[in-house]
């Protein structure tokens, strides 16, 4: 029973049921709409106290992006960009991608992140 008593310190951010929401989304990938609604709720509630957790605007933006709602996606990528300077490189890419086309779904392909010369594994 003791395992389930997690520290009693209060959280800095408003998370809603983010853990469970993402877990359920992975368990039932067809329930993207539900996950999207839950993220929206976290944002709405979190914004009242200025306690939207890092990454949540972007996560919501990405769900919109996957649903081809590019303009709304850009709005939330921009919110993440404005709120968290650490996100700016990634958010710039995502905004560029969302603006650029309705077909391209990846971040810029000009960087190969797997080092080919390091493939010395058997």
């Amino acid at each position: 029973m003791l395992f389930f008593i997690v520290g009693c310190s209060r959280n800095m951010y408003y998370w809603g049921n983010y853990n469970t929401d993402l877990y359920c989304y992975y368990k039932n990938p067809e329930e993207r709409e539900k996950f999207s609604e839950h993220l929206q709720k976290i944002i709405q509630t979190g914004e009242q106290g200025g306690v939207v957790p890092p990454g949540i605007y972007a996560e919501y933006g990405y769900i919109l992006y996957e649903g081809k709602q590019y303009e709304q996606a850009i709005e939330f990528f921009q919110k993440e960009y404005d709120r968290w300077p650490e996100s700016q490189i990634l958010m710039s890419k995502m905004i560029r991608n969302a603006k650029k086309s309705t077909e391209v779904h990846t971040v810029s392909n000009d960087e190969d992140i797997v080092e080919n010369e390091n493939n010395d594994k058997p």
Partner: peptide, 15 residues
């Protein structure tokens, strides 16, 4: 959650 609450920017894991 635990990383963000520790005061770091966490990139959106699903994205």
């Amino acid at each position: 959650l635990p990383i963000a609450e520790q005061g770091y920017y966490v990139f959106p894991v699903n994205m």
